[in-house]
């Protein structure tokens, strides 16, 4: 029986596209960002309804974006729109803040799409394929580490959700001091995450896990190249806008 996990695109092409979008994203304007984000948002909403739900749980990402936005708004010189004590909100600051946040969101969406559609074994095989020709780099070890990071991400998120639930059950959100809230949340989360990661590592060891294993076959077909070509064209067009 073949693996039932849907193979969306060859992992090597996905890695190239992800790197391309991340690099191109640094210099994109509003039009370019809209051109790249529109198809991604449509793909997400059509094919991964479960992923949309997870966005509501990404409040820390939104918190980070808000911080970046505020920092940009108040630190960019330009035409003042409003004053707040010694600092002023500028038109250019609003524009820059929005632009930087949208670029971060683009990189996040691409990363989330990659993780959602790629098995950790494929990540390992893909990274190893790219690193193999590089001398002095232990390709298998680096690839294994990267794939394990991808494997442990859901573990950390799951532990964070459980810790948060346990604290809310005891009215933890009533604490006003952010430092105490962070300590009360962070320490048990780290302890639980390390314990779970330790258990997982032992279970993997019990099943003979090593760097050298049967990797998935990496193949590219006509559909892969068609998708890749379209995506590259979109990235180049977005960069030119």
């Amino acid at each position: 029986m073949p693996p039932r996990h849907g193979r969306v695109l060859d992992v090597r092409l996905k890695l190239v596209l992800m790197a391309g979008v991340s690099v191109a994203g640094l210099g994109l304007g509003f039009a370019g960002l809209a051109l790249l984000m529109a198809p991604l948002v449509i793909l997400f909403s059509v094919f991964r309804p479960a992923a949309r739900v997870q966005f509501s749980e990404l409040r820390w990402l939104f918190f980070l974006l808000a911080l970046v936005f505020i920092a940009r708004v108040f630190s960019t010189d330009g035409t003042p729109l409003a004053g707040l004590g010694p600092v002023a909100v500028t038109r250019e600051g609003l524009r820059e803040g929005t632009l930087v946040c949208l670029r971060l969101v683009l990189v996040f969406i691409v990363g989330a799409a990659f993780i959602a559609t790629t098995r950790s074994a494929e990540i390992k095989a893909g990274v190893e394929w790219f690193l193999k020709p590089v001398p002095w780099v232990p390709a298998a070890r680096v690839a294994t580490m990267l794939s394990l990071v991808a494997r442990f991400m859901p573990v950390i998120l799951e532990q964070a959700a459980k810790t948060s639930d346990a604290q809310r059950a005891r009215a933890g959100e009533n604490r006003r001091n952010p430092i105490r809230r962070l300590t009360a949340f962070g320490i048990p989360l780290m302890r639980r995450t390390f314990e779970t990661a330790d258990n997982l590592a032992v279970a993997m060891e019990a099943r003979c896990y090593s760097e050298t294993r049967t990797d998935p076959e990496l193949t590219t077909g006509r559909k892969d190249w068609l998708f890749f070509g379209t995506a590259v064209a979109l990235i180049l067009t977005a960069a030119a806008l």
């Binding site: 029986m1 693996p3 039932r4 996990h5 494997r151 099943r207 896990y209 049967t214 990797d215």
Partner: peptide, 16 residues
Amino acid sequence: VGETVHDDVAFGPENL
């Protein structure tokens, strides 16, 4: 350790 039931069962044989 696998993303699907199939992948999880394949984990051991792949390690071998």
